[in-house]
Design a protein around this nucleic acid. Structure first.
Length: 843
DNA sequence: GAGTTTGAAACT
DNA sequence: CAGTTTCAAACTC
């Protein structure tokens, strides 16, 4: 179709381009042959180029997405046809040569499917049929076409892809899917469609299993790679899309079984579900029943999901929520599934397995081995504290398996699918659960009977530990249990609520009243969270920041805290002396730091004053002079609140390590004062010497960089000078800022930068200069050419033309630049040489 | 379990 | 930004 056009288009600019003397010149240096570009153009449809497209972001990708996106939207029938053919066009393009006939057949089928319905509902039916029966694809096709309740609900690309999967023969599907996945950067919806490959799941049971397994894993990987991007988006539309795909998943084939199983497959846990096929089938059928209700809109599905799918939707809701919670991190479904794949240490009843996700999670919950993603500090606020405290002697009291079973999960899995599942499971299993004001929820609980197998799994322990007992256990467990809130007025939508603050839904054991922090009120929860985060982006960040071992040492050194963590903002205790759990530091099992503004700190995990008390007293004075509000002379009082925020905030969010590091250093920083002290008054104080010494000590344990820094940091006796950068530089720098030696700071920076080729010795030969320049430019050129060729291959015709001109111009610039740079190099080197010569001569 | 204390969060 | 109020957990009895 458009091939001739493309080649035509592509050819023109290329020839033009090749005529360019610049291009010729560059090509004379380039190992890449110009021919290649032409070839590439022709291989536009080839897997090779496609692969490239998937690697490099290019206009092609966006275009592609555009089209896919377009396809995804509801169409009138006529448009639908186009869309289908369009969407197929891509696959057709890719595989036209090899199996065009076959594909066209499948395309026809797919088109038929497009016409047929594409309603989620239908999909579920079809797939259920499929999953409940042995994979007979011809049969499935028939079902598709004949399904009586096809409706005209919106059609999504998901569907299309999915249908394609179904309607092809296994081998064809393999090819098709491969082609599609290879040649297209699949938008998330489409991705889901592929991911759906549930048929693939069935395929596994099929003869061609091996192929499919490979394919599945490949695809899944791809899908998973892209997923986070989608998930990380918090926009409504994105959510919606996501939700849609999820729904389609769910409907498509008892998603909980298929998709999960397929993911499990990736981890090689096929054994587990292989034996459960029958169970799955039954479960699917139950879903099928519930699917009758699935004509509801996406939103409805989210808020008032028909039970059968409740659990699933919750799981995914959990995923979505996690994405929202940790936007930067972008939780991928892969994670989710990986998590779910955590081998349960406690074997569950066979009937507990089918709902793999929940079950897996539950089981992992029961496991005594920490779940991988139950890492402290993953956004967990008080729960993180609780977690931390677990590590502490204080909380290391006896743990009964049961208690652990109950508590662990909630506190450490923020909005993870597990949470939803847990919650659900709690609800299901807990006989004491008070009727949820929201009927739907109760309904769901009951309706999830398809998942009821869950109940026994949990119920075993749950039933033996009723609410009160659990609370009691929790109370006696010293933070071991997950936090269960008792909110009465906040509706669990404020940070007062520990569950909410920790990023988890309230669970049954909570005694909250009018709780809105539940999956059913997801929208509200998310909105509230957004609102709170808008006020304070770190509101949901971990309150206790774990540090690396390296920092641990530092932290311990300074504060004698056994923990390698510090409270993000520090406490503000006035009366508890940081000896009660009113104190967040104490509660978190961490010592107070200089960030704290506590009075009379006696924190058992480390007093903020400690051996640095003296210097802080002086510091305090200085701060008072500065007008910095201080409490009663405690160290932390010296640290302006804003600074804490600044530091902690700059640190926390993304990378744990930097944040940790900074968090630990923060205290030192405070002690070192430079930062705070952009004011000279602090700088000149003698106590800084002490701090400096300390910082030097710290550096001994530091990495290379810090070693450099240490070397350059001023000795204790060094004269203090204010480091202008101290305050605003990133934490590490802040940490270094402790040694208020401006000189040192600069040295550090210089040292950390790869040194420029030494010019201090003899003047570099022109060969050296040339070679270095050559290398740079050749690399540059290769990259450019490569880019250009790729763009030629992928970009639309008009783009190519534009690109060629642009590129030619670009190359011209480069050429000029190259000349200029060469001159500069020569000039500089000679200048150095000349200087050196002069110096040597004169002195 | 009720009442008090406490400090964080939220509000003004 | 500081002061006040609200809130829920921690604590005490």
């Amino acid at each position: 179709m458009d091939t001739p056009e493309r080649s035509k288009v592509g050819g023109t600019p290329i020839s033009k381009f090749e005529d360019s003397p610049v291009f010729n010149f560059i090509n004379s240096l380039s190992p890449i042959q110009p021919v290649k570009s032409v070839h590439s153009i022709h291989t536009f449809h080839s897997p090779g180029s496609a692969a490239i497209s998937s690697v490099f972001s290019s206009p092609h990708v966006s275009f592609h997405k555009e089209s896919r996106f377009f396809i995804r939207h509801p169409f009138p029938d006529s448009v639908k046809q186009d869309a289908c053919s369009d969407g197929l066009d891509e696959s057709n393009i890719h595989s036209r040569v090899s199996n065009g006939a076959v594909l066209s057949a499948s395309i026809v089928l797919a088109q038929a499917n497009c016409d047929i319905t594409c309603s989620l509902n239908e999909a579920s039916v079809d797939l259920v049929d499929e999953s409940s029966t042995q994979p007979d694809f011809s049969q499935s096709v028939q079902v598709d076409n004949g399904s009586p309740n096809h409706n005209t609900s919106p059609f999504y690309g998901v569907k299309l892809d999915f249908k394609l999967d179904i309607s092809c023969t296994p081998s064809e599907r393999i090819k098709l899917v491969k082609d599609m996945t290879e040649n297209t950067q699949i938008p998330h919806t489409t991705k889901i469609g592929l991911e759906v490959q549930f048929p693939a799941d069935q395929m596994k049971e099929d003869a061609s299993g091996s192929d499919w397994e490979n394919l599945i894993s490949d695809n899944t990987d791809d899908l998973l790679i892209f997923e986070p991007a989608t998930g990380s988006e918090t926009s409504k539309s994105e959510e919606k899309d996501y939700g849609i795909s999820l729904n389609s998943q769910r409907n498509a084939s008892c998603l909980h079984n298929v998709s999960q199983d397929s993911f499990m497959d990736d981890d090689g846990e096929t054994d587990e579900h292989d034996g459960m096929s029958p169970m799955r089938s039954s479960a699917c059928q139950e879903h099928e029943n519930f699917d009758d209700l699935n004509l509801k809109t996406e939103a409805e599905l989210n808020n008032d999901v028909p039970l059968g799918c409740k659990v699933d939707s919750q799981q995914h809701r959990g995923v979505r929520r996690r994405c929202l919670d940790f936007e930067a991190a972008g939780v991928s479904k892969k994670n989710m599934h990986n998590n779910s794949n955590v081998p349960p240490s406690i074997s569950l009843p066979i009937n507990a397995k089918p709902n793999s996700d929940n079950r897996q999670l539950v089981s992992s919950k029961t496991s005594k081995t920490p779940v991988p993603y139950v890492l402290p500090g993953i956004g967990l606020h008080l729960n993180a504290l609780a977690r931390t405290s677990k590590d502490r002697p204080i909380s290391q009291k006896t743990k009964t398996p049961g208690r652990e079973f109950i508590s662990r999960p909630c506190s450490m899995r923020p909005f993870s699918p597990a949470i939803a599942g847990e919650k659900q499971s709690f609800k299901l299993s807990d006989p004491h659960q008070s009727p949820d004001p929201n009927g739907s929820e109760v309904h769901n609980s009951q309706a999830v009977h398809s998942d009821v197998s869950l109940i026994p799994a949990l119920g075993i322990e749950e039933s033996t530990s009723p609410k009160k007992k659990r609370r009691k256990t929790e109370n006696s467990g010293e933070n071991e249990g997950c936090r269960r809130c008792n909110c009465k007025k906040s509706k669990c939508l404020k940070l007062y609520c520990e569950c909410f603050a920790a990023g988890v839904y309230c669970v049954e054991p909570c005694s909250c009243q009018g709780c809105l922090n539940k999956p059913v009120h997801e929208e509200t929860v998310l909105a509230t969270r957004k609102q709170i985060e808008s006020r304070n982006p770190l509101a949901f960040a971990p309150k206790v920041i774990r540090t690396s071992e390296h920092d641990q040492e530092m932290g311990e050194e300074s504060n004698k805290t056994p923990a390698s963590a510090r409270h993000k903002r520090g406490c503000n205790c006035k009366k508890s002396n940081c000896l009660k759990k009113y104190c967040e530091c104490y509660q978190g099992g961490v010592g107070c730091s200089f960030s704290c503004r506590c009075e009379g700190c006696k924190n058992a995990f480390g007093r903020k004053d400690g051996f640095e008390e003296i210097e802080y007293e002086e510091e305090l004075d200085a701060c008072e002079k500065e007008g910095v509000k201080s409490d009663d002379g405690k160290a932390n009082a010296n640290v302006p609140k804003l600074e804490h925020h600044h530091l902690s905030e700059s640190i926390l969010p993304v990378t744990p390590f930097p944040s940790c590091r900074s968090s630990v250093k923060l205290p030192f920083l405070s002690s070192g004062k430079p930062p705070r002290s952009s004011t000279l008054s602090l700088m000149n104080r003698s106590e800084n010497q002490q701090a400096e010494c300390k910082s030097d000590q710290i550096f001994h344990d530091d990495d290379d960089t810090s070693e450099d820094l240490r070397v350059n940091s001023s000795p204790c006796t060094a004269v203090k000078t204010a480091s202008p950068n101290g305050k605003r530089v990133s934490l590490p720098l802040n940490g270094f800022g402790m040694s208020p030696n401006l000189k040192g700071g600069r040295k550090l920076i210089l040292k950390s930068i790869p040194s420029f080729p030494s010019l201090s010795t003899d003047a570099p030969s022109s060969t050296q200069i040339n070679s270095s320049v050559e290398v740079i430019f050749i690399v540059f050129k290769v990259v450019l050419i490569f880019q250009y060729e790729i763009s030629i291959c992928l970009w639309p015709s008009y783009f190519v033309e534009f690109a060629s001109d642009y590129f030619r111009m670009y190359l011209s610039y480069i050429f000029i630049w190259k000349m200029v740079m060469r001159k500069i190099f020569i000039f500089v080197s000679h200048l150095f040489y000349f200087n050196k010569f002069i110096l040597n001569t004169i002195f």
